[in-house]
Computed example of a mutant assay.
Amino acid sequence: MNSASVPQGMDLANRLAWQTTDAVHRFRQEGWTDPGEAAAVSLVAPEARGAPILDIGIGAGRTVPLLTAISQDYTAVDYTPALVALCRQRHPTRRVLHMDARDLSAFADAAFGLVVFSYNGIDAVGYDDRMTVLREVNRVLRPGGLFIVSTHNRTGPGFGERPLSWFRFTPNPLRMGWRVLNAVRSLPDVVHYLHNRRLHYDGPGYSVRTAAAHHFGIVIVYATMQEQKRELAETGFHCEAVFSNDDGRRLTEGEDLSGTWWFHFVARKMASPATGA
């Protein structure tokens, strides 16, 4: 498969994965995904208090109570019908729309003071569509508005995961029997991985790979911190802070990022798009 067809393949694989019963069940979780998400929201909360909020990739509604604690002027969107239906069921008084982040044309320019795209949702689309999402978010944000987005780390421990990577021979018959049993149980993971690896692709500062989540059923973008900052700058944002998922610390350029699975970026809409990266 050539690189031009990768985004379509990603879209199909991810939409199918997120509509499964297992995926819908997983999206029922409550609370913060990790300390980094909590730190990013805590940073913007005082300024965003009472402002209109757009919550992208709402899933089953995990972030509804987290963000409505900041503002009751709240709108949520997701492109998976099963998750939109579940979110509406769980939060019937909230405005939850079936919408793709690549097309936010239902919203006027400068309609929101804060936009949040959590749980690495932006990683589910190809590079060109990723840039489209960022431009759409910039358009619907007020000048000076804030944006929180998370993305997988290409230099982190999750990059390049493969099924059965743990499998090793052991002379102990009980241990070996247990490993073989687990390997048999993992066969769906292997099938998904082999099917999706045709979509693997490397670009400047980012890569497309099959991820272990949802039984290796999803294909996502992994980006370096520098690349994500560049993408934000190109689409009219200034990056104000980056937080690590593992311990919520604020990251700086040049430090060792090999233990960070994904990043949480806090960015601000600039008065006008940047002319360069």
Rank of each mutant, 00 (worst) to 15 (best):
R168P: 00
D55F: 01
V84A: 06
F147A: 05
N245T: 15
M270L: 15
S42Q: 14
L54Q: 10
F112A: 03
Q226L: 14
R130H: 15
R198F: 03
R26S: 15
T275Q: 14
F27K: 11
G59Q: 07
C239K: 01
D202S: 14
N153D: 02
D189V: 04
R209D: 09
A277F: 13
G248D: 06
G177N: 03
G217K: 10
A60T: 05
S118P: 15
L134C: 09
M99L: 14
L181H: 08
A48T: 06
A60S: 09
V242A: 06
P143W: 07
S258V: 01
E37F: 10
P157K: 03
T80S: 05
E234F: 13
H238F: 08
D247P: 05
Q226H: 13
A267D: 04
N138T: 02
P35S: 10
R175F: 04
Y119P: 02
A271F: 02
V191G: 03
A17F: 06
Q72R: 13
F243A: 03
A101N: 15
S150H: 07
Q89N: 09
F167M: 14
W32A: 05
A241K: 00
I56Y: 00
N14D: 13
A124Y: 10
A241T: 03
V191E: 13
E37S: 02
N153V: 07
D103S: 08
